[in-house]
Simulated assay, not measured.
Amino acid sequence: MQPKLSFDIADLKLLATHSSFERGSDYYDRGSVKKVIGKKNIFEGKVKGTSTYDVRLVVDGHALDFTCNCTYQMGGICKHCVAMGLAILDGEYEIVAEEADINHALNKESPPSYPYTFEEIFFITKTELKAQFLHQLLLQNDQLQNEFIQFISRRAKEKRE
């Protein structure tokens, strides 16, 4: 299951300088966060800047411990950490489960006999496969297409605010 996050955008703003937060927001908006993997309270990801940087976040209660392999030393967290933090807050990460559990869950023949819930299956399924499924559903239903467009428009507006 997806972990419950104990931080929000205000926490990121407190940890970063104004400049780092703005630049990290720009990185996130441009799609510079390439891959984020979460396991329990640890998130690891790649953020593309002048190079590709490895970013790690350990969430310990309400404490956030970010690390990045960039050379930033101006105080607060760097723009790469901000970008990854924003991606995590938007749910743009994949949960890692044990390989045997994933294979078992995905190869079961009869859905009612799954020992896993919808939430567990959903979060161990690759993003590309979920996008394929969503696309197929949307193509079959004009009402869902309109709801999808409205949802995406609202999210884009929220990010601009």
Rank of each mutant, 00 (worst) to 15 (best):
H104N: 14
F43G: 00
K4W: 12
S32Q: 02
T17D: 05
I95W: 11
I149S: 05
C81F: 02
Q143K: 15
F43L: 06
S19K: 14
C70V: 02
K35L: 09
Q150D: 06
S110P: 09
G76E: 04
V47T: 02
R56Y: 04
M84S: 01
A63P: 06
G61R: 00
V55C: 03
F122L: 13
D29P: 00
K130H: 10
Q132C: 12
T50P: 07
G85V: 01
P3D: 08
I77C: 06
S113I: 10
E98C: 14
L89N: 05
K13C: 04
Y53R: 00
E109S: 15
K48P: 01
H135Y: 15
D29R: 05
K34T: 04
C81M: 03
T127V: 14
T117K: 07
G45H: 03
K130D: 05
E98M: 14
I77N: 03
V96K: 14
L86E: 03
Q145W: 10
L106C: 08
K4C: 12
L86F: 00
K39L: 13
I102R: 12
E44M: 08
Q132F: 15
H104K: 13
T127E: 14
S110E: 12
N103I: 14
K126V: 09
G61F: 03
K46Y: 05
R155P: 07
L14N: 15
T71Y: 10
N107Y: 12
E22D: 11
N41Y: 04
I37D: 08
L64W: 04
K157R: 13
Q143R: 15
D29F: 04
K13D: 02
T52P: 01
H18K: 15
H135M: 12
A16W: 00
I102K: 12
M84Y: 01
N103W: 12
A16S: 12
F43D: 03
I152T: 06
L137S: 09
L89Y: 08
L89F: 09
G91V: 06
K159I: 00
K13S: 05
E98D: 15
E128V: 06
G31A: 04
S110R: 15
V58M: 10
R154I: 09
Y53S: 01
D142F: 10
T127G: 11
I149W: 07
F151Q: 07
F21K: 01
A97P: 07
E161T: 11
N141G: 08
E119C: 08
G24L: 00
V36E: 01
S6N: 15
I152L: 07
T125G: 09
K35M: 09
T117G: 06
P112A: 08
T50K: 09
F118E: 11
D90V: 07
E158H: 08
G61V: 04
Q140C: 11
N69Q: 02
I9Q: 04
M1Q: 11
G85L: 00
G91R: 06
N107V: 13
E92S: 07
N103S: 13
